[in-house]
Design a protein around this nucleic acid. Sequence first.
DNA 1: GTTGTGACGGGTC
DNA 2: CGACCCGCCACAA
Length: 107
Amino acid sequence: MKPDRSPTEFETLVYQVVRRIPKGRVSTYGAVAKLAGRGTARSVGSALARNPFAPEVPCHRVVRADGSLGGFNGETEGPEMVKKTRLLKSEGVEIQSGRIDLSRFGA
DNA sequence: GTTGTGACGGGTC
DNA sequence: CGACCCGCCACAA
């Protein structure tokens, strides 16, 4: 296990932005960075990677700009990843060939 | 203060 | 389509 640390102000800001993402809607790292008004997709990804509020902050609703899911399941090709994908789909997010149709959300 | 890394993005080959 | 490179910002050592 990796030692957790207190989230910085920037990270907290990212969590609050991601937290208000409605169900059935997905957002991108770049969009979150823009809404946060600070940082870029790189920093947002780093913040979500250390997200201590896993169930509270729907980090799984944040995907890459190209529609790919991202690292929260990228390496985990095991059965657990399929579960997350299915959960996302359950919320109303259609995933085709491992990609999400961002055109539906205008992102 | 400097260096390296990362759940990214856009462009190029 | 995929693979590769560079640039971006925040964080840890």
